[in-house]
């Protein structure tokens, strides 16, 4: 494979930097007393945790609490995490669990469980109203793709939403954290990406620019 592609994330293959590895290294340095290592870890991983919380049904205020709580749990459990390589998965699973219980607490009067909800009623879906400042062709296309994802099963929505924020080496960590079998996406397309691809193939917006 070509190593010249690493500077182009949209085409990155197995040489893309792994967030899990970077997180493990930062966490090890933190445990060795490097006080700035944790700051870098927070900068690198927070976007992924944010979207993990949001994809579990947390509104923005709840997601913010969930992300803060997750990082504080890491401080509490710094010495309980035996393998630094597992820190990214630990963070993702903690975020998912915290978000899930926060959402459930917030909806006590609603008899249904989160997994019973049809995707269309997701109150956490990003605002659909177009931002005039972003009304370029690319953003039109991005919005079209997002609309296709929103019509996929909830688990596919969660998976695609998160893998969009990592490179291929981290797909397995993201899948595992969501409880989706490893290999459900990458190196082959897998079910969720295939469903998206099928929808895109039938969409003139995508066909024109692809």
């Amino acid at each position: 494979m070509s190593t010249g592609r690493t500077d182009r994330p949209e085409q990155a293959g197995q040489t893309a930097p792994s967030l899990a590895v970077a997180a493990a290294q930062a966490f090890s340095r933190h445990r060795d007393g490097d006080s700035s290592a944790m700051d870098r870890l927070v900068d690198d991983v927070t976007p992924l945790l944010w979207h993990t919380a949001r994809s579990q049904g947390a509104d923005r205020a709840t997601a913010e609490d969930v992300v803060q709580t997750t990082w504080l749990r890491l401080v509490e459990h710094t010495h309980d995490i035996a393998d630094p390589q597992a820190v990214l998965q630990w963070l993702l699973m903690t975020t998912k669990r915290e978000a899930w219980s926060a959402v459930r607490r917030g909806r006590r009067t609603v008899p249904r469980e989160p997994w019973d909800e049809p995707p269309t009623s997701d109150p956490t879906a990003p605002a659909a109203s177009p931002d005039p400042a972003l009304a370029s062709e690319e953003s039109e296309l991005a919005r079209a793709i997002w609309q296709h994802i929103e019509s996929l099963p909830a688990r596919c929505q969660q998976l695609l939403r998160l893998v969009a924020f990592v490179d291929r080496p981290d797909y397995s960590v993201v899948s595992a954290s969501l409880g989706i079998p490893v290999g459900s996406i990458g190196p082959t397309r897998g079910r969720c990406l295939a469903k998206l691809r099928l929808a895109l193939t039938a969409d003139p917006t995508w066909e024109v620019t692809a």
Partner: peptide, 17 residues
């Protein structure tokens, strides 16, 4: 193309959420 679609999803979510 898959990578491109995912990159666009990332751009979209970063902008709206």
């Amino acid at each position: 193309d898959d990578e491109r679609a995912l990159a666009l999803v990332r751009d979209h979510l970063s902008a709206v959420d």
